[in-house]
Amino acid sequence: MKYVTVYDAIKNDIVAGTYPPNSKIPHTKDLLKLYACSFTTLRHAITLLEREGILRGIPSKGTFVRTYTEPIKFKASEKRKPLLAFLGSAPFTTPQYDQMHRSIYKYMRDLGGKTHPILCGGKTIHDLVKEINSLEINMMITLEFYRKDLRKEIESLNIPVVHIDMLDVACRKPSINPNNVQGGALAFKKLYDIGHRNILFINNVSPFINDEDPAGKMRWLGFSQECKSIQNVRVHKETLLSEGAISEQQEMRGIEELFEKYHDFTGFVFGTGIPFSEVKTFLKNNPRIQTTRMDFVVFSLGEGPEMVNRKPVWFCKWDAKKMGEIAVKTLLDSSKSYPKAQYLPMFIEKNC
């Protein structure tokens, strides 16, 4: 790609001292002539150099070379013991993260290796490379990376990588995902088998992407496919805006309107745990709504007892511990016998 050539040329000039530390690089018009490229190509190359921490843009002043001349590069660790970085976009506080990390930690410990959880947050690839170099990391697992740019840059490093995600993401390295479509079909079948003929599927807007939760979308796909051939059942899908996008008062009003609209529905499937938590709060504060005939299926790894009006809730789960174990096995598989995308089946159980 042309922008990679320009990126390399500018970086080489920085290393060679053409643009010294703290100096301002030439004006865009001069750079276009110097590197014989289009504005779009130049902008892309400059952006990559800024992400890597080599250049720094200062509004109204220009673009400057940072205080070091040699960019830090990834150094593949030659240590025999496996040293793994477990990379996440959000804090490792959910049941899924906790179960997965415990599984990975135990597996690595049994191998005589170590695991280092690393939160990526707003880090650039340059920040990340510095961190994994200092820890002498020689393999990585990413967990639910919403930053596609960083995922691609991680894949370009000379290091084994496996992605764990809630849905099948576009990536070049192996990935492990729960089978969301199969899980959606399972949720419908459970409610249908226990007698429900009016079933509502509820998804939410993901706060990370400001759009309908993509894992919930895949679960709805499996749900809707499973019920197509059945005549005596009514199914609908609704999407709830969560707190943060709207006020708590608006949120509760939206849920109230939902139960008014679907007053004769008795089966409810929640595409993620977020809308269920909000609906549960609403039902607790509105005892006039009769829940004795209702059953709930929630896609979540919640571990504790969960009840609505003393009635156990069904959970559609995936084995997070097994996902972590398979991720490490895939990283250590020198024969490359594992498929590029692996899907773990979901299962339903009550938390009571």
Results as ranks from 00 to 15, higher is better:
Cys37Trp: 03
Ile72Gln: 00
Leu49Glu: 00
Gln96His: 12
Tyr68Gln: 14
Arg102Met: 09
Ile54Ser: 06
Tyr97His: 12
Thr94Arg: 05
Ser77Gly: 01
Arg56Ala: 11
Pro59Lys: 04
Arg80Cys: 08
Leu49Met: 05
Pro59Met: 05
Ala45Ile: 03
Gly57Trp: 00
Arg80Val: 13
Phe86Leu: 14
Cys37His: 04
Ile58Ser: 09
Met100His: 04
Lys75Asn: 08
Gln96Ser: 08
Ser103Ala: 15
Gly62Trp: 08
Tyr68Phe: 15
Pro71Trp: 00
Phe74Ile: 03
Glu50Val: 15
Arg51Cys: 05
Gly112Trp: 09
Asp110Ile: 13
Lys79Trp: 01
Thr41Arg: 01
Phe39Met: 06
Glu78Gly: 04
Thr94Val: 12
Glu70Asn: 15
Pro82Val: 02
Tyr105Arg: 10
Pro59Gly: 06
Thr47Ile: 10
Gly62Met: 12
Leu84Ala: 03
Cys37Leu: 04
Ser77Met: 02
Met108Gly: 04
Glu52Asn: 02
Thr94Gly: 08
Ala76Gly: 02
Leu84Ser: 02
Leu83Met: 12
Ile104Glu: 04
Leu83Gly: 03
Asp110Gly: 07
Thr63Ile: 15
Glu52Tyr: 00
Lys75Met: 00
Lys61Asp: 13
Thr41Ala: 05
Thr41Ile: 07
Ile104Ser: 04
Gln96Tyr: 14
Asp110Pro: 10
Tyr107Glu: 15
